[in-house]
Amino acid sequence: MSQRSKVIQLYKTLLYMGRDYPKGYDFFKKNLRKVFEKNKRERDPEKIDKMLAHGNFVIKELEALYMLRKYRTLKKRYYEKS
């Protein structure tokens, strides 16, 4: 996969994951666009690779965030005595 399509793929994946973001999809989309646009003039392939790696790290973090949030909510609702 070319670096360009990797970046596009990353953007699409993050956009998809943003639908579950606690602060709302619009908030996530706005900020996602902002950070991608900030670096749009970057041409150094090594730097872009680093950014891609960071993007994939963010994906993992988001997955963990969603899982924990769901687990904690369920635990609070069903398992902790009020």
Binding site: K12, T13, Y16, M17, E63, Y66, M67
Partner: peptide, 9 residues
Amino acid sequence: NEPRYATLP
């Protein structure tokens, strides 16, 4: 268990 995330691909 801890369910996996259904990824876009």
